[in-house]
């Protein structure tokens, strides 16, 4: 267990900047997710933390000890970490127990001690029965657990997880997600988790760090992040919100390109001027009042339906009770709750 501190990290590959001025503190025993679309720099950040990449500038501390910084470059094997790779990286030429035992044999432990620890780690991930199997005989979910046991067996100060669930099918993902949460509750290790799946991040994390184009957009607890997104990007990525640009004038929002007008409810505080409107699909209503818009598609979701209206070259999504309507019909769309971000 150890706290982590990243200070002003920059990293580029050739002329392409990947991480731009990232600072983040992770407390001891905390689980922080790095969330963002692919190419946002989250995996690079994790790899710098692991020592597999070296930041161009910036300082990384693990448990107070500087592991990367000016003139300091502690190699990965001396950082005391555990890591689960995206493709698991389970060694095909070693059996399950040989895979898990490897970090211990490097620490010069006695054979009986190694065997006991391997058995314990395999019990954590419920693989005791498969200890002597070879990796090619295992399923994806089982391989993932081998990787997890191997990462945990030497009691690392920090556990790093690089999209550990993304290669699995939906049902297995649910199961492993629950298992990961249980394991974490038991072990209390500091955890950094990279994912592009907002559901995964919301369900597992103490705090989420949302990244976009190499920059940290917001770091907060899942609920805060969902309720009070600090930027339009966070609102769009985490809540699946509609994002429109335009201008606030006389208590209404005018979109930039088509000039479509949405009345703002009385409790929405908005100074006049250029702004970005962020509204979740479920915070829009269809009814007697509102802006008339042509319906382009209706997707039945079961408990509700999603309605799509073309506005300003994108599709405005509305989630509302199922109605008997057809594409082409004009419906009235009303804002119930929206957030406005002033531009500039």
């Amino acid at each position: 267990m150890a706290a982590i501190s990243l200070e002003g990290l920059f990293k580029s590959y050739g002329a392409t900047p990947v991480v731009r001025g990232l600072s983040l503190e992770v407390r001891e025993g905390e689980l922080v997710s790095l969330l963002g679309p692919s190419g946002c720099g989250k995996t690079t950040t994790l790899r710098m933390l692991a020592g597999l990449e070296h930041p161009d500038t910036g300082v990384i501390r693990i448990g107070g000890e500087m592991v990367a910084g000016p003139g300091v470059r502690v190699p990965p094997e001396r950082r005391g970490l555990g890591m689960v790779f995206q493709g698991y990286a389970v060694w095909p030429h070693r059996s399950v127990e040989e895979n898990v035992a490897y970090p211990l044999t490097l620490r010069h432990m006695s054979k009986t001690e190694v065997a006991a620890k391997v058995r314990e780690a395999l019990r954590w991930v419920r693989l005791e029965a498969l200890a002597t199997r070879r990796p090619h005989e295992l399923s994806g979910g089982q391989l993932q657990r081998v990787a997890l046991a191997r990462a945990l067996v030497a009691s690392p100060r920090v556990l790093l997880l690089d999209e550990p669930l993304s290669n699995l099918d939906a049902a297995l993902r649910e199961e492993l997600r629950a298992e990961l949460a249980a394991l974490r509750a038991r072990l209390g290790t500091t955890l950094v988790f990279v994912t592009h799946d907002q559901g995964e991040a919301l369900a597992l994390s103490d705090r989420i760090a949302v990244m976009n184009q190499g920059v940290l957009e917001q770091v907060d607890a899942p609920e805060t992040l969902y309720r009070e997104p600090a930027t339009p990007f966070v609102a769009g990525f985490v809540g699946g919100a509609n994002v429109l640009t335009g201008e606030v004038r006389e208590g209404a929002f005018h979109t930039a390109r088509s000039g479509t007008v949405f009345q703002l409810s009385a409790d929405t505080s908005a100074p006049p001027g250029p702004a970005t409107l962020v509204v979740r699909p479920e915070d829009l209503a269809l009814g007697e009042q509102g802006t008339p818009l042509p319906l382009s598609a209706r997707l039945f979701l079961g408990h509700a339906a999603e309605y799509r209206f073309p506005v300003d070259g994108t599709l405005l999504r509305v989630v509302a009770p199922p109605l008997e309507v057809r594409p082409g019909q004009t419906l009235k769309v009303q804002l119930r709750k929206a957030r406005l971000f002033s531009v500039g």
């Binding site: 020592g51 190699p75 950082r79 890591m83 995206q86 990286a89 990462a151």
Partner: peptide, 14 residues
Amino acid sequence: DPSLTEAARISGAG
């Protein structure tokens, strides 16, 4: 996969 070697490094191997 390069991550196979990286996994060994993380495990504590030079």
